[in-house]
Lab assay of single mutants.
Amino acid sequence: IRKQWHEDITQDLRNHLVHKLVQAIFPTPDPAALKDRRMENLVAYARKVEGDMYESANNRAEYYHLLAEKIYKIQKELEEKRRT
């Protein structure tokens, strides 16, 4: 379902936000690492998460909020795993 606010969101912005999700899960300073085949699954997962939020959000603010919440949860989980 195409929503009115979707018209304001460019593909570049969506790609940028997918990249932010990927960085939250696997922070790497090396952009070449993103071309690694093992990263493809991670990028696919991040695209799916972003797509789900894009579809479920009712406006741009909610879209950003859902993504920020997801990134926060991912970082929290990773922190907890590092501690144990």
Rank of each mutant, 00 (worst) to 15 (best):
V22D: 01
P31E: 13
N59Q: 02
F26L: 15
Q11W: 06
P29T: 14
E80I: 15
R14L: 01
L66R: 08
E62F: 00
N59D: 13
L34H: 14
Q11F: 01
R37Q: 13
E55G: 01
F26R: 14
A61M: 10
I1N: 14
V22G: 02
Q4M: 09
K35H: 08
E62W: 04
I9Y: 00
E7K: 11
A44F: 04
R2Q: 13
Y64L: 15
L42C: 08
E79F: 00
Q11L: 05
E7W: 02
E80Y: 10
Q75M: 01
L67G: 05
E80P: 09
W5A: 07
D8H: 02
R60S: 12
I25V: 08
D8N: 06
L42A: 15
M53P: 02
E79H: 06
R2H: 11
V43N: 01
I9T: 01
A32G: 11
H19T: 11
A46K: 05
L21Q: 02
D30P: 04
M53G: 01
G51M: 15
Y64P: 02
K73N: 10
V18A: 02
A33S: 11
A68R: 14
E62V: 04
D52V: 04
P31R: 09
I1Q: 07
R82N: 07
I74Q: 03
Y64V: 13
F26D: 15
S56V: 12
A46E: 06
L34C: 12
E80N: 11
A46H: 00
M53C: 13
P31S: 12
I9F: 08
A68H: 15
L66W: 01
K73S: 11
K70M: 06
K48Y: 01
I74C: 11
Y54K: 06
I74D: 03
L78S: 14
N15W: 03
K48D: 05
H16C: 03
L34W: 08
A68W: 10
F26T: 15
R60T: 10
H19R: 10
A32H: 07
I25Y: 15
A44D: 10
V43I: 14
P31K: 11
A61Q: 14
K73W: 09
L21T: 00
V22P: 00
Y63L: 00
Q23I: 00
K35Q: 10
E77K: 11
R82K: 14
D36N: 08
T84Y: 06
E80A: 04
P29H: 06
I9L: 06
T28H: 04
Y64N: 12
I9S: 02
G51E: 13
A24T: 05
V22A: 06
K20Q: 11
R82P: 11
L34I: 15
K70H: 08
E55W: 02
K48R: 08
F26S: 15
H19M: 12
R37N: 07
I71C: 08
N15A: 07
K20H: 01
R14K: 00
Q4I: 12
E77I: 07
D30W: 07
R2L: 06
K70G: 05
V18D: 13
K73Q: 14
E7A: 12
A61D: 14
Q11D: 14
D52F: 12
L66M: 14
N41V: 03
Y72I: 15
